[in-house]
Design a protein around this nucleic acid. Structure first.
Lengths: 199, 199
DNA sequence: CATAAATTTGACTCTTGAGTCAAATTTATT
DNA sequence: AATAAATTTGACTCAAGAGTCAAATTTATG
């Protein structure tokens, strides 16, 4: 009986999906660094050693790629949110969550893009809904913290918008090849986040 | 002797400069809300009750407008930084500064745009230099605070990047017509900023 | 009113980059 | 090797939006 695991690299569908994913990640990097409209499909293709026409074998259009970039980020955040987080208080949970967020954003090629307005109405609504869901979960957690006494009073939404800003801004300045290591940033940010809202 | 002050509204040069400023502010709003490339000059003109061709009577090109939008924001921040800020400790000064920043961003039509990469090399370098100068001043202030004991230890740059993120993210969600008043946001953010870095 | 300066416009041009497609090439299968 | 399927390409089309310009219109001035 043939070993299916060894066959995987030769599995056509898997190959395709893997390449498609690589395309989207590469595009995401370009979008993050240069902005959606400044990153041309031709250049993105060239960076992958391909032609633009070849790119379009894996994707339908540029907007779809942007859309999927957003989804990948929110999928990753959902995954982190889903995981059971340790910590007695909501504040502890929030901190653990935040560490994971920063680590995810610095370690994986995934990033939180800001260019939502380059999406068509449909996709834009979708992405904003996803973001909203995540925000609401975090706001809920903050409110829990205000109940269990670990987080100080104040507009929970503002509490969240404040430290989520740091996360979004990360994409603008973080450079994986820089001297700051992802884990250090995560530790620092988590501390600062926590201090900012603890009671 | 004629009253010069009363003449001002009829002063040609002043009229021109005022209109030009209005054009740049309107464009800035559009850039903030839709992104630089999604905001067409034609639409910006239409919003002002003008034609695209008329816009170009006041400006040289679109990039120049983006450039000036950035400069306006950094000018405003420089102005705030220049003002002597009260407060015994560096932390107090920083807080006063931060309140002014938020108030400026919510009250004036000026905003911190993120689309630096849509600028040509020259202008981009200029804008990044301006941003760098401001960041360095704030980092310096944080270091002062670490010396005078008001701010806790840690990478001063990271301290700053964290709470400057909130400022940049503001542009993405703040809506002047929303229920949150600028001053309230300023007060909340200042508190959270301070708590995040005080020793 | 006549003249000149300032302002605005319609109708263009030009560039850039997204997206297409039939044909060529590579890779796998019998 | 022959065949078929998957992948890549060169050479295109097409649309959108920036920027121009001569002519029209408005505004101020003697």
């Amino acid at each position: 009986m043939t070993n299916l695991a060894l066959k995987e690299p030769f599995n056509r569908e898997k190959q395709f999906t893997a390449k498609r994913r690589a395309v989207i990640l590469a595009a995401g990097q370009a979008f993050r660094r240069q902005g959606y409209h400044n990153a041309s499909m031709t250049k993105i293709a060239a960076n992958l050693g391909l032609t633009k026409a070849a790119l379009y074998y894996y994707i339908h259009n540029k907007e779809e790629v942007l859309y999927e970039c957003h989804l990948m980020a929110y999928d990753a955040m959902d995954e982190i949110l889903k995981a059971k987080h340790d910590g007695a208080t909501a504040l502890d949970k929030l901190e653990a969550l935040y560490v994971d967020f920063v680590n995810m954003l610095t370690a994986s090629g995934v990033s939180l893009l800001t260019d939502v307005n380059s999406l068509g109405e449909e996709n834009k609504a979708d992405v904003l809904a996803r973001r909203g869901k995540i925000e609401r979960k975090i706001i809920r957690l903050v409110k829990d913290g205000q109940k269990d006494g670990s987080i100080r009073a104040g507009d929970a939404r503002l509490h969240v918008f404040f430290f989520m800003g740091a996360l979004n801004w990360l994409n603008a300045w973080y450079d994986a090849s820089g001297r700051l290591k992802g884990e250090d940033i995560a530790a620092h940010f988590a501390l600062q986040m926590r201090a900012g809202i603890r009671s």
